[in-house]
Write a protein that binds this DNA or RNA. Sequence first.
DNA 1: ATTTTGCGCAACCAAATAGTTGCGTATATA
DNA 2: TATATACGCAACTATTTGGTTGCGCAAAAT
Lengths: 114, 114
Amino acid sequence: MVANKSKSVRRDIFQAIADPTRRAIIFLLAVGAMTPNAMAEHFNSSRQAVSKHLKVLVECEVVNQEQQGREIHYHLNSDKMKEIEKWLEQFKQLMESRFNQLDSVLDKLKNESK
Amino acid sequence: MVANKSKSVRRDIFQAIADPTRRAIIFLLAVGAMTPNAMAEHFNSSRQAVSKHLKVLVECEVVNQEQQGREIHYHLNSDKMKEIEKWLEQFKQLMESRFNQLDSVLDKLKNESK
DNA sequence: ATTTTGCGCAACCAAATAGTTGCGTATATA
DNA sequence: TATATACGCAACTATTTGGTTGCGCAAAAT
């Protein structure tokens, strides 16, 4: 038995989008669900390579699988994508706080020069 | 002589934010410029480890260095952060196109049922 | 002038990544 | 029923990552 991967390896949205092939897969799936074979045809990458990326994306909970006969349709979990926006929002708030500090410094200077 | 790193290794904003320590550094620098020592004190990570992350961030053009005596002040290049937003915008547009397709399908069904 | 501090860099290491080839298996098709 | 197709998985590889320790050097403090 192998140790639980989710405990040892980083599996989050930021890891998911770190690879350009995975970003391309995400863009493809944004348009609609797809099978691994269909995806592999879109960029010059082997089916197995795509399959491995899909495994990572499943582990990161960015995509879901839907079995249909011998095909597996991969769907995008767009909720997970929102975590990027959430992080960016936090970032922007920090940036604003920085400017607010700068503003207060400028205000101070203004008052002192009175 | 070693091969140019920028040619072999991926150095973009997505690589920059893939690591949690680097994301923490970005948040710190969002508030204001800082030296490596000051950053290292903020999370339990050695100065050298932080230094390595900063090197990656410089290569990804997410931060700039400003030498001041023996200290180096690291500044955030917030323009680079906009590339994430840009990518998210593209993604959202694709998602909308998906829903527009769905809408047109629904419209079609509606017309057919007339 | 000597010591301390701030920093980058090289060397090393274990682990993870991204890809490949070669299976096995289940579902379709002939 | 025999064959083709869709897919995941294991094993192997080269490269990258993220961390460490141990320098060396220049600037600051003593």
